[in-house]
Amino acid sequence: MSETSASPPSAAALEVRGLSVGYGPVRALREVSLDVPAGAVVAVLGGNGAGKSTLLRAISRTLGYHRGAVTAGTVSYGGRDLHGAGAARAVAAGIVQVPEGRQVFARMTVADNLRAGALGATGGRTATRAALAHVHELFPVLADRARQHAGLLSGGEQQMLALGRALMSGPKLLMLDEPSLGLAPLMAARIAETIQQINATGTSVLLVEQNAALALRLASTAYVLDVGEVALHGPAAELAASDEVRRRYLGVVDETAAEDADRARTAAPTLSRWTA
């Protein structure tokens, strides 16, 4: 990031230590530790069911809505333990999550969606007005379509609205759950660029992505979750260069992988009866 932090919102560090989460008897996270330093972009990679969304829910204090609970470990932000806090307290502390699949309020207008984003804000009217101006500057299309119902926006515009809505409360740590999911490549690139812009104003970003190439380009540090545990972590550039990450998440086919695929193809029986 070129000119880092003119820093209006003073970001603090997020520390996750030894976090275990269960949904009833199902363990979703096991002893996960993770840091988001102030002003950084941190990526969390992993396949389906690796526990990425669970990690975000534990930080945003919304596990209860999914019948999950923290069984061990702590989440603290700026040195303050979030244990026992509700979702509203997390938002008041400056942690805002953009949910997976955008989840805009489809039956409400774009303007009302943005107002809803400011409901948890603690800054008062002037702060909200400034936040709205900032969001309109980032996404002019949201100003043009203010009176339209959010359900009528395109996928990319809905993602912009979801981002804008989260920015309305002036977050210090923005958590994004699969922001590029289901978007055309050009739109995904546009969203990535916006994330960089948001980070440049001093907001830390915790980014969960299946699109590992995009995530590793944006992030300074990355974690790889595998079946609820941290399998790898380190500087994003290092991870991007590692063979395992390249093979598993970046779709780079090296020679052994190609051999594996060949072997699988020859070993698979032909279903002549059904394909005839």
């Binding site: 809505y65 509203a88 809803a116 409360s169």
Partner: peptide, 10 residues
């Protein structure tokens, strides 16, 4: 419309 998302907004 969406209680979980509303909770995420505070």
């Amino acid at each position: 419309e969406n209680p979980q998302t509303a909770a995420l907004m505070g």
